[in-house]
Write a protein that binds this DNA or RNA. Structure first.
Lengths: 166, 166
DNA sequence: GAATACCGGACTAAAATGGTCCTATTTGAT
DNA sequence: ATCAAATAGGACCATTTTAGTCCGGTATTC
């Protein structure tokens, strides 16, 4: 459980690398594949998906490539991952159009809804700036101000909270 | 992502039903399959797994069957689910014996470790009593005392917190 | 000793996953 | 104009994972 698909991992890696490039520049798939060690065909597909999701912008033709559509702090973790996941539900009875044939005898649905909403809410507060720089949250003393929808998880990430690692 | 395997869902359902039975009684796979609408062969496998995990106890022979090994409040969500999941990591670079070939250029590992630990910790605080009775946490006024390792998620579940559902 | 039930391996069908290949189409440079 | 660089995206395949079935074995009760 929990584990994201490999495409999602590639997407996270791609966004991370694009975030390091100058904001107005654009990087070709070939270059990015070289940097990231991700098979370029697969990476191409992933970037297309990210483009459709509006996370990344593309410039076609010679000299073209991909760049972030906006600042990492405006890109949520789920924005990057969702295009490559079929569902974000913990159990299937929480999936969009599933009417449970066991509803008579099973009472998992409601507690599961709470659980599911909690998890989603936590992840919703995560933005990609928490992942980009190499350990920027560990070495940098200066910490950014907490955004409005800050969650416990986001807070911990920003602080590199050691407690969470135990 | 997040989604548990179907066996895990069956395991949750099974534990829920066993929790409703009298603590000293034991229910056969056939009976349980009838109650839960789960294919009995599959359910048998699931219960064997739960037994190996120490979640349920088995009584062999005529009149035998399965019962919970301890009170629902002493059974954690992860106890029930883990036997049927290959991994609890969000990304593969957090899995037990994975040495990352991208460690030079990828800085996802450390923030991901925080993320991973956070998720696990939240789920670790979940016990099965939060799932058993039909809406007991919604209709019952009396609420149990918070255990030592209470987490935000467990708290919300205990309260059936509407905020989490938005 | 026969019926009841757990135990658990072997096997199969179906689906998801990860990856490759091939062919447009757009664009910049010569 | 033409060519090369690059994205766009469909079709396809191999592998793995998943879900489920089947079957013989063992323990226990009546």
């Amino acid at each position: 459980m929990f584990k994201v698909s490999r495409k999602s991992e590639y997407a996270l890696i791609a966004v991370q690398h694009l975030a390091r490039a100058q904001p107005d520049r654009v990087v070709s798939v070939a270059d990015l594949a070289g940097q990231t060690q991700v098979p370029s065909d697969v990476l191409a597909k992933v970037l297309q998906g990210l483009k459709r999701a509006g996370v990344v912008r593309a410039v076609k033709g010679a000299g073209g490539g991909y760049g972030l559509a906006r600042a990492p702090s405006d890109i949520r973790f789920l924005d990057v991952v969702q295009p490559f996941e079929d569902t974000l539900a913990v159990v299937s009875c929480q999936m969009p159009s599933h009417d449970c044939e066991r509803s008579e005898t099973c009472s998992l649905r409601d507690p599961m809804a709470v659980l599911n909403a909690f998890v989603l809410r936590q992840f919703d507060g995560l933005t990609m700036d928490l992942f980009v720089a190499p350990h920027h949250w560990l070495i940098s003393g200066g910490r950014s101000a907490a955004p409005a929808n800050d969650t416990s998880l986001a807070r911990r990430l920003r602080q590199g909270e050691a407690a969470a690692l135990r």
